[in-house]
């Protein structure tokens, strides 16, 4: 019975979310449920609210949630600080990862993991490095990167791989990948996609946000949603991404207008 109920609530659930930047409403009554084990993709033209969704869920202070709710496994996260949301199991891979000069990747990830331990407990250093190296090898990141400063002087591909490395180390329940394909050449894209695919499984729900269909050839989604003007205007399976690629975003505009 207990398992049954847990399974019922093992979702990232977004309910009628309205988000504004300043006075401007961006997301409008946005609803989506992502069960663990599934990969959902959100596609849409620029400026329709894709990144707003990611940042609002992560708790960025510039994004004001005016109504609606977001729940992890049945528990609302909107009253939580961004660090609490992360520790609760939400991960966002940034579209533009931030450079932190002077802080090494190893220390950064260690601080993030230490933040998840009970007061007074510390990570076991050898085990930590073993796990870090294993994941770096998987993502084809040179082990020397442990002593590089976070994102400092990284290429676009290195930054995105470093995001996925953090995701692998933090082992989230739900991950939002915000335009993880932007700025990547095809080889880098494959490495990143392989990394994400290796983390896929029944304990992880993924939301892939992208402008292009290309990424979805490598991270094949279970569901695809098309976002336009702050709302989902069409949902379908992976073939919807191909259809969208073929017909272009003007088609989305038409869809939105007929819906309205």
């Amino acid at each position: 019975m207990i398992d049954f109920f847990n399974k019922m609530t093992a979702t990232l659930e977004i309910q009628n979310l309205n988000v504004s930047i300043g006075e401007k409403p961006i997301l409008k009554d946005f609803s989506l449920t992502i069960p663990k084990g599934e990969v959902h993709a959100i596609m849409g033209p620029n400026g329709t609210g894709k990144s707003t969704l990611a940042k609002a869920l992560a708790g960025h202070p510039d994004y004001e949630i005016t109504s609606g709710d977001a729940l992890i496994d049945g528990e609302s996260i909107l009253e939580m600080e961004p660090d609490e949301r992360s520790r609760e199991g939400l991960f966002m891979a940034f579209q533009y990862p931030i450079e932190i000069p002077g802080v090494t990747i190893a220390n950064f990830i260690r601080a993030a993991l230490n933040g998840r331990l009970p007061e007074g407990e510390e990570l076991n250093a050898p085990a930590y490095y073993r796990s870090l190296y294993e994941k770096m090898d998987m993502l084809k990141i040179d082990r020397k990167f442990t002593s590089r400063f976070v994102n400092d002087g990284f290429s676009g591909g290195e930054k995105k791989r470093c995001e996925i490395l953090q995701m692998a180390m933090l082992d989230p329940k739900y991950a939002i990948l915000d335009e993880t394909d932007s700025g990547l050449d095809i080889d880098a894209l494959k490495v990143v996609a392989d990394g994400v695919n290796s983390l896929r499984g029944e304990n992880l729900g993924v939301l892939v946000i992208t402008h292009y269909q290309r990424l979805l050839e490598y991270i094949v989604p279970d569901h695809v949603h098309v976002l336009y003007d702050g709302r989902i205007v069409k949902s379908g399976d992976k073939d919807l991404a191909l259809e969208l690629e073929e017909k272009g975003y003007d088609w989305v505009k038409e869809l939105a207008e007929t819906a309205a």
């Binding site: 949301r85 992360s86 966002m92």
Partner: peptide, 29 residues
């Protein structure tokens, strides 16, 4: 930088610790 702090918060690093890391980073050179 607020964005630096947000990035660290988004990884689950508590705010005081995030500030401390930025300060260490600042002094690292």
């Amino acid at each position: 930088e607020e964005e630096e702090i947000f990035y660290m918060l988004a990884r689950g690093i508590p705010k005081e610790k995030a500030q401390e890391l930025v300060v260490y980073g600042f002094f690292e050179e």
